[in-house]
């Protein structure tokens, strides 16, 4: 999986194409961005995803990272999570975990509320 940033969406300016390899490594233990460890299992993520569980907000322990993806500059992940409120254990929708800006990784505050890709698109 390669994240590409080639146009500044705010200004519309073209930028040099930057490709950033994204990988899930070590049996789903962590997300590699450009061969650097960026996101690992064991974090608690609060996210809005009515398709995941019945809670207003899921409060999920990240057990395994499954797949990386990109939506524009946003790096997303599907992960096996268990909601510590209701106990539901499932694979999440695409959740944002960081951004690639000028080829560099920027963390998203994952202790705050994460909106799944589908939820963001609905808004």
């Amino acid at each position: 999986m390669l994240a590409r940033t080639d146009v500044d969406r705010r200004t519309g300016d073209e930028r040099p194409v930057v490709t950033v390899p994204l990988r899930i490594q070590d049996d789903g233990a962590w997300l590699s961005v450009d061969d650097q460890r960026r996101v690992g299992v064991g974090e608690l993520w609060r996210f809005y995803d009515p398709g995941f569980c019945d809670c207003d907000l899921a409060d999920g322990v990240v057990e395994n990272l499954v797949e990386p993806g990109v939506d524009g500059r946003t790096v997303e992940i599907r992960a096996v999570c268990q909601c510590i409120v209701c106990g539901t254990k499932a694979t999440t929708d695409w959740l944002p975990v960081g951004r690639i800006v000028d080829g560099e990784w920027r963390d998203i505050d994952r202790e705050g509320l994460l909106l799944s890709n589908a939820s963001r698109k609905r808004e």
Binding site: Q25, R37, G40, V41, G42
Partner: peptide, 10 residues
Amino acid sequence: GTEFCSLSIV
């Protein structure tokens, strides 16, 4: 465990 392992949660 988390002393050294990437996968462990505790």
